[in-house]
Amino acid sequence: MADPVLSLRDLDVRFNSDGHQLRVVNGVGFDLMAGQTLGLVGESGCGKSVTSLAIMRLLASPPAEIAGGEVIFENRDLLKLSKREMRELRGGRMGMIFQEPMTSLNPVYTCGSQIIESLRRHSGLTGKAARERAIELLETVRLPSPEKRVDDYPHQLSGGQRQRVMIALALANDPTVLIADEPTTALDVTIQAQILDLLRDLQERTGTAVLLITHDLGVVAETCQAVVVMYAGTVVERGDVSSIFADPQHPYTVGLMAAVPRMDAIQGRLTAIPGSVPPPWERVVGCRFAPRCPLADDRCRNERPALREIAPGHEIACWKAPIEGVSATGGQS
């Protein structure tokens, strides 16, 4: 397999508030390969957005503090770069799309001028050339009549159209890595599908590696080649999509999959994982999922499991793995 374009090693992010230290991201690591789409999944508050913002070094500090680890991009540790070096990368070889298309564009500038701003910054394009490139980009993201839309303000566009503009903006300078933080969460389902199609298409065409952050396993199954499952700030399972979907091993992943509503089965209530994510200020000695895990025993509660390989390309942080008799559809039995 190709070399990773982006590698996270033991990333630790803390939030300092009122003298308390909240460990929001705890030893997270994964490799994003060239041309790959990697899904980072987990429920709300598991630290996936914080991880993505930490990679771009967009976390406001204070209160956030990157306490340790490495983010290797192009053989350099991003966490050690100066602010100026980091700005060169942001919007240039690293693009980012955010969750809220409605508020992520500046309402007082036209869509075109916001793209041009980035082109001028990184590609040195100005005047007519920049404008033409902006129109071209809007065409690439399949915005209808781009030569007119380029002069529209964000409020004149719908949510899906704005997200297309955001994608155009993120791709403006042909990035090597594109981080998409829940790009479809705020959109309705049909638009979601269109945007995901677009992302997949663009990814195939440009070969950009995509880190897709989502809580939607359906999205992952459709778009990603590899998955990292996060729970309460830690990675609990990672591997390629086929092995994880065919044979989920961590009880949390199993629970997540069971919670996905299915078209082919008649269900009464939706399946849910009992309990809730431990708050980051709670000190957990053992496995963080143990309080909600149906298989947990004393070892789980007292010793934290590390990631270990259970099959080629499939790693899991659980004492119980490999588990027999656990399937995605049946929940725990």
Binding site: M56, L58, K83, M86, R87, E88, L89, R90, G91, G92, G95, M96, F98, E100, T103, S104, L105, N106, P107, Q114, E117, S118, R121, H122, M166, L169, A170
Partner: peptide
């Protein structure tokens, strides 16, 4: 504090 300012930072614009 708004989202579009984060977008501006994500573009790599100087502070």
């Amino acid at each position: 504090r708004l989202d579009h300012v984060r977008t501006a930072r994500a573009k790599g614009l100087p502070e």
